[in-house]
């Protein structure tokens, strides 16, 4: 049994002067186990070769395929069409990011900018001797670091966050998560004082309005609510 489904896509090419943003509807037949990635590929192959969207891994790992599906930012490669009982899907490019064309947005540029702002790397003056075995890390600490390192930079938390949409300079949940990650890494020698320099203002931790849309939409289920509260408690008392 195959259903008829309708996928409506907001098409727009900001680089083409004649292009106007508009919804274009595509009708197709659902196939068993069809993901949104498969559906979009089918549309591009059979109906509209001009449709732009991004995919790489098709397995929820690379973070390229974020888009707004029926209002909710999601990874398209992990979205099953069968979960939409009425067979209607409306697709919009994720807000907050520079629009490339149709569903394709430049999350990379945003993430680069964020990484620079929060200095997303280990900061230490320790000499590293590469002839020696690395210093050991307590397994629980390592687990805690890996847990937060699972972020795939898909940008869904940013596109979900009303604060980030209203205030483009906000480092966003992904940015705050990055600080939380380095603050528990024992190799990073930065102090709370140093972290305050990076996110101790209304574009950082004190800008977060606890809407928890990040927590509720992150496809990797990162503990954003808990980590943001942790950073707030930590940095509010910095002398």
């Amino acid at each position: 049994m195959s259903r008829d489904i309708t996928i409506s896509v907001l098409k727009f090419n900001p680089r083409d002067e004649d292009s106007k943003p508009e919804f274009v509807e595509y009708n197709l037949k659902e196939t068993p186990g069809m993901t949104l990635f498969i559906a979009l590929t089918k549309i591009r192959e059979e109906i509209d070769a001009d449709l732009s969207f991004d995919f790489v891994c098709r397995a929820g790992i690379c973070g390229s395929c974020g888009m707004v599906v029926n209002g909710v930012p999601t990874l398209a490669c992990r979205t099953l069409i069968e979960n939409y009982p009425d067979g209607k899907l409306q697709l919009i490019p994720m807000p907050a990011f520079e629009l490339i064309k149709d569903l394709s947005v430049n999350t990379g540029k945003w993430m680069d900018n964020m990484s620079t702002k929060v200095e997303s790397w280990i900061v230490s003056n320790d000499e590293v001797d590469i002839t020696k075995i690395e210093e050991k890390m307590d397994p629980d600490t390592a687990d805690a670091v890996f847990e937060l390192d699972r972020c795939i930079e898909c940008g869904i938390c940013v596109a979900s966050c009303a604060t980030a949409l209203m205030r483009p300079d906000f480092v966003g949940p992904a940015g705050l998560n990055r600080i939380a990650r380095f603050s528990i890494d024992p190799r990073d020698k930065r102090t709370d004082d140093d972290f305050y320099e990076l996110i101790g203002d209304d574009n950082g931790i004190f800008g977060c309005m606890s809407l928890l849309s990040c927590e509720d939409h992150c496809p990797k289920h990162l503990p954003l609510q808990n980590k943001i509260a942790y950073l707030r408690r930590k940095l509010v008392s910095v002398k």
């Binding site: 209203m166 205030r167 809407l211």
Partner: peptide, 21 residues
């Protein structure tokens, strides 16, 4: 601009805690 995006977003995402804010 901020009001406009907040309104569009709240209506579109249908997320309770955003709505409550």
């Amino acid at each position: 601009k901020q009001y406009q995006v907040l309104k569009a977003h709240t209506k579109s995402i249908q997320h309770q805690d955003t709505q409550l804010w």
